[in-house]
C-alpha cells in the first residue's frame, strides 16, 4: 500500500513540473513573443536534433571531452593531493601557487590553451582538466589532513610501513572527502565543457547552443540544448552520489542526507 507521503512524493513534483510547463507556454502566448519558444516547439526541436543525428553526436562529443579532461585530473589530482596532505613541507611549498591558480576561471586559460594546442580537441580538454584538477587536489589534501590521528596510531601499532599505512589507512579514511571533491569537480567539468565548446570548437552541446542562436536565432534548439545539458548533468551528479552510498564510505557522510 503506498502511503500518503509516497503519493505526495510522486504527485507533487509532477504537479510542479506540469505547472511550470503551463506557465511557460502561457507566458510565451501572452507576450506574443516570436523568438522565445514554447515547450511544444522545444520538444519539436529535440526531435529535429535527434532526426538530424546531431543529438547523439554532440552529446557524445561533450561527454568524451569531459571523460578525457576529468580522467586526467583524477589520475593526477588524487595522488598529488594525497602527497600534499601527507607531506607538510610539500604543502607549504606549493600552497601559494595552488591558491593563486585555483580561482582563475578555467575559461581564462582559453587563449593560452589555443596558443599551445591550436583550435583542436586538446584545448577544451585542457580547460576541463584545469577546472577539475584543483578541486580534486584540494579535497584530497584536506581529506588526508583531517584523518584522525587515532587511525594513524592504530595503523602504526600494527606495524604498517608507510606505503601500507597510506594505502590501508590514510586513503580509505580520506575517501569520503575525496569523493565529495570528485563529485564537485565533475559538476565543474560539466560546466566548463559547455563554456569551452561555446568558444573553442565546433561540436558538442555548448556549440549547439551558441550555433543555434547565431545561425538563425533558433531559440527552440537553444532551450532544447539547455535541457539536454541539465538532464545529463543531473545523471552525472546522481551517479557520483551513488558512489558516496557505498558501504565502505557511507560512515563519512553521517548527517549529510543531501
Amino acid at each position: 500500500m503506498p502511503t500518503r507521503s509516497d503519493v505526495e512524493r510522486v504527485l507533487l513534483p509532477l504537479g510542479t513540473a506540469a505547472l511550470a510547463i503551463v506557465a511557460w507556454s502561457l507566458a510565451v502566448r501572452l507576450t506574443h513573443t516570436t523568438v522565445f519558444p514554447s515547450p511544444l516547439k522545444v520538444a519539436a526541436g529535440l526531435r529535429e536534433l535527434a532526426a538530424r543525428g546531431v543529438l547523439w553526436r554532440y552529446t557524445g562529443d561533450s561527454l568524451r571531452r569531459v571523460a578525457t579532461g576529468y580522467s586526467l585530473a583524477l589520475v593526477l589530482g588524487v595522488p598529488a593531493g594525497l602527497a600534499l596532505g601527507w607531506i607538510p613541507a610539500l604543502a607549504s611549498a606549493f600552497n601559494p601557487v595552488i591558491q593563486m591558480a585555483r580561482p582563475i576561471s578555467p575559461l581564462a586559460w582559453m587563449p593560452l590553451a589555443i596558443l599551445w594546442f591550436g583550435v583542436s580537441e586538446a584545448a577544451p580538454d585542457l580547460l576541463i582538466f584545469l577546472g577539475a584538477f584543483f578541486p580534486i587536489v584540494v579535497a584530497s589534501m584536506n581529506g588526508v589532513r583531517s584523518v584522525p590521528a587515532m587511525y594513524l596510531q592504530a595503523g602504526r601499532n600494527f606495524g604498517l610501513s608507510t606505503p601500507r599505512l597510506l594505502a590501508r589507512v590514510v586513503f580509505p579514511a580520506a575517501l569520503p572527502q575525496i569523493l565529495v571533491g570528485l563529485r564537485i569537480a565533475l559538476g565543474i567539468a560539466w560546466l566548463v565543457v559547455v563554456a569551452a565548446e561555446m568558444i573553442a570548437v565546433d561540436s558538442g552541446l555548448g556549440y549547439l547552443i551558441i550555433d543555434s542562436r547565431n545561425a538563425g536565432k533558433r531559440y527552440d534548439l537553444v532551450v532544447a540544448g539547455m535541457l539536454l545539458i541539465g538532464a545529463i548533468g543531473l545523471v552525472l551528479d546522481v551517479v557520483a552520489r551513488r558512489l558516496e552510498r557505498l558501504r565502505s564510505v557511507r560512515w563519512g557522510f553521517q548527517g549529510e542526507t543531501a
Binding site: M150, Q153, A154, N157, P172, A173, S248
Partner: peptide, 15 residues
Amino acid sequence: PRRIFVFQERGVFPW
C-alpha cells in the same frame, strides 16, 4: 605489533 593499544575513542576503522 607485539603490544597493541586499544583506544579511548573507538579506534575501529569505519571503512
